[in-house]
Write a protein that binds this DNA or RNA. Structure first.
Length: 306
DNA sequence: CGTGGCCCCTGTGGGC
DNA sequence: TGCCCACAGGGGCCAC
């Protein structure tokens, strides 16, 4: 699943094409992936899906991305585990790639994006499309009336993780008994961290994933916030982590997997010390950490007693 | 309040 | 080759 870096890289790859561009007709092939914030939107699904509208902005908070139309309407895109948004033209794909294409828009890209392309030999009749595809359907589209309505919903999310703040993490967590990893995965605490980057950030900060939040010191929160910002911004720059499904707007995978120090490496040597990385489950999610580099701190005695 | 356990889905890889 | 199981980047809900 795409976490913040994948969503942000996707947003950046889409932005120059859709902002200044325009959606034409929309084809909804699986209705259940679309939801509407109000009955008014539900009553006119085409305009709720920004059909025949100019796109004026893209937005993102945490793992959610949104397109804003000149009509004022807003469409949120959530990728879930396997969602993708791609720009394509010409023949529709065949075979396995043709499955799970739930929403397809006719699309006129921004002129500034296409003017940079090589001459297409006069094939101006080949229409562009924007495609939302999602095999597992954990993702989906949600229509809102306005950016104000979107803002109300997004205000229930925590601070965007690219701007993680040690002070904010500390003030919202310093009385919490939850394990720090569970808190990082809670989008109401901080928005955008998922299973990969939670483990990577905790490793970078030298904090054990089972450390209770309240046992962390102010400097731990600050170091963790700083490592979250660093880990995520590096991953954005690498184009995101492609484990299997993630692709950007042009179908390109990202390279951030090369930078993973612990995720998916249980049983392998720690990259920083002679110990071996260990695996466990926190909040039902696979978790990898170094038992030597990542300090259980003042929770140590409690854990040993148990 | 916090957690573990389900559930929503499809696809893939490993073990036999 | 096939079958069955476990597992996967997310998130919501429920009972304890």
């Amino acid at each position: 699943m795409p976490e913040l870096p994948e969503v942000e890289h996707l947003r950046r790859s889409l932005d120059p094409w859709v902002v200044g561009g325009r959606f034409g007709r929309v084809s909804v092939r699986r209705r259940s992936v679309v939801s509407f914030a109000t009955d008014r939107l539900r009553a006119d699904p085409e305009s709720a899906l920004l059909s025949n509208a100019a796109i004026v902005a893209t937005h993102r908070r945490g793992k959610q991305m949104a397109l804003e139309a000149a009509t004022g309407r807003v469409l949120v895109i959530q990728l879930g585990m396997t969602g993708s948004v791609t720009i394509e033209r010409g023949a529709h794909p065949r075979g396995i790639d043709a499955k799970h294409r739930h929403v397809i828009w006719e699309f006129t890209p921004a002129a500034s994006a296409t003017s940079a392309l090589p001459d297409d030999g006069g094939e101006t009749d080949r229409p562009w499309r924007l495609v939302f595809r999602d095999p597992r359907r954990f993702g989906g589209l949600t229509a809102y009336e306005s950016v104000e309505a979107l803002g109300e919903v997004w205000s229930t999310l925590g601070h965007d993780a690219l701007r993680a703040s040690g002070r904010l993490l500390r003030s919202s967590l310093d009385r919490s008994t939850r394990p720090i990893k569970a808190a990082l995965l809670d989008q109401a605490v901080i928005a955008g961290v998922g299973n990969i980057y939670a483990d990577e950030s905790l490793f970078a900060a030298g904090i054990h994933p089972l450390r209770t939040c309240k046992s962390l010191h102010p400097e731990d929160f600050h170091r963790l916030a700083s490592k979250i910002r660093l880990t995520l911004s590096r991953a954005v720059r690498a184009g995101g982590s492609t484990l299997r499904d993630y692709r950007d707007a042009f179908g390109e995978p990202g390279d951030a997997v090369q930078e993973h120090k612990v995720y998916g490496r249980a049983g392998q040597p720690c990259p920083r010390c002679p110990a071996r990385l260990e695996g466990l489950r926190v909040g039902g999610r696979a978790t990898v950490f170094c038992p030597r580099c990542q300090d259980l701190g003042s929770d140590l005695s409690t854990k040993l007693d148990a």
